[in-house]
Amino acid sequence: MKAAVIVFPGSNCDRDVTVALRQSMHAGGGGEPTLVWHKEADFPAVDLIVLPGGFSYGDYLRSGAMAAHSPVMTEVARRASRGVPVLGICNGFQILTEAGLLPGALMRNAGLRYVCKDVHIRVESSQTVFTSKYETGQTLRIPIAHHDGNYSADDDGLARLEDGGQIAFRYCDNDGSHSSAANPNGSARNIAGIFNETKTVLGMMPHPERLADAQLGGTDGRPLFDGLIEALS
């Protein structure tokens, strides 16, 4: 199993997700994630591509807008079209929407402020390469940390996501119910993460890599990485 973590200027969760991937890779037979600098448009073949969180190019334009035009993204898109799984977390999700690999957009949080806290999210489908180690309907505690996490799409777009089973996670209360009080950023239909049509690209605002280690207070994020390694090994 080979995994690449793409590093953009301003990425700052590249090490964190590498640590989480490495933990699962070591438990699942070995291997070492590769860090790929964004100018390296020609990187080795891998089984998984991760776009980490951070503030690529400072997010001085729209979040993710500059990185979406980075040299490496042409190659990421090409491989995604061939079915190589791509995981985008936080800024990585924003880059995926800006690059057109996922529909919709991440707008400024409804509360207008940056929010960093644990939230609960509900797994909407366990039938994907990313979520196979979870149960459908399972509630996870995972942190968010973003200023622009308010998922938005037009009604037709939202209907297509619902109909296609493309909603990966929704913000929820700790009992799994989707209340507006549990929505930390105003996202349409409490959306915390979505798949592409083939369920090979996942973008999510919560950071599973931040709670994948009991020393940090929780491990609900770990099965996502364990499941990917298992499925792709």
Binding site: V115, P143, R210, Q215, G217
Partner: peptide, 30 residues
């Protein structure tokens, strides 16, 4: 205040804000 600060990036924050002192793991150690 502290929910407006990313207090978890680098994935070594073992003791978050709100306690007597912050606890930050020395990376790759206990």
């Amino acid at each position: 205040i502290w929910e407006q600060y990313d207090h978890m990036v680098m994935a070594d924050t073992a003791g978050r804000p709100g306690g007597d002192a912050a606890v930050v793991r020395i990376h790759d150690s206990d």
